[in-house]
Design a protein around this nucleic acid. Structure first.
Lengths: 144, 144
DNA sequence: TCAATAATAGGAATGATTACTAATTAGTTT
DNA sequence: AAACTAATTAGTAATCATTCCTATTATTGA
């Protein structure tokens, strides 16, 4: 099953690399559709999975019933606001420190670690000020 | 909106505290239903959310289209197998180290961090041996 | 150019989770 | 203990992000 370099796949990757981080599949769909009007949402999902499998893009799951995607070109972690679901990037390089700590920990056994996910949950600056309006948003986001 | 101590809510919490970690809402439903035959799945979801809001249980989202729940009584992190979706616990206490590192990082601004999520993705011992059979499983798990 | 087959568009199906509502309860007050 | 009130429940319908299915199209290697 050799991968082919289709226009759609390339355009999807371009969209993710051009627009900073944290795009939903729907976001990508809207962006790419501008130049590929016949694009199908299924194509977006399929390619995002392919690209994630290659390690070209990273899937982000914050427990909000929706998946975000970003390029793996830059390494950073995320602050997720539990009120408005906003995402802020934190520049940090922890890879080696974390790996060292895990190796020392008990329970790892023969598990072969490939990568890790770390994110911080809390309340962003804006929501500390106006908590009420923002509160509605998360309910909507969580709904399916 | 004062919380009440219903039999169902207590039984749901008991189930999570009794059975180690990583239960799905469906798991909890089946366990509690044994003693509360008229239990509704919606009641389980609602109470899991209430308990998570209280900080009594922790929600685990590994990007597998399903949410796991566990008691917050013990602190540990998780190794998630990307083949069979199995979960292994790692005993480690990083809270303070991580918090110190984040404070030094750039981009945090006025964000008020309440807690964090850290998990490691890779391949468990079993799936390193027999990768083929296991491969099917994840597709099923990911399907909605 | 041409065959082989990966990928696509479009739409239907899936399934975890949430929403809704009438009936039931826990906790409180008389 | 009876009455009261708001929280909670059971049961079921609805939601919606994501996956699946299939006929058609496009890419690539020969």
């Amino acid at each position: 099953m050799n991968l082919r370099n289709t226009k759609q796949r390339q355009a999807i990757l371009d969209a993710i690399e051009t627009h900073g981080g944290h795009l939903t599949a729907e976001d990508v769909y809207k962006i790419v559709k501008r130049h590929h009007p016949r694009l199908s949402l299924g194509t977006v999902y399929r390619n995002l999975r392919v690209l994630a499998g290659q390690g070209t893009v990273r899937e982000l799951d914050f427990g909000m019933a929706i998946t975000y995607f970003e390029t793996t070109k830059d390494t950073h972690y995320h602050l997720v606001c539990r009120i408005c679901s906003g995402i802020v990037d934190v520049e940090m390089e922890l890879e080696q420190k974390l790996m060292k700590l895990v190796e020392q920990a008990s329970g790892v056994g023969g598990f072969q670690i490939e990568n890790h996910r770390l994110d911080f949950v809390g309340i962003c600056e804006a929501c500390q000020v106006k908590p009420v309006q923002a509160a509605k948003q998360i309910r909507t986001l969580r709904a399916r």
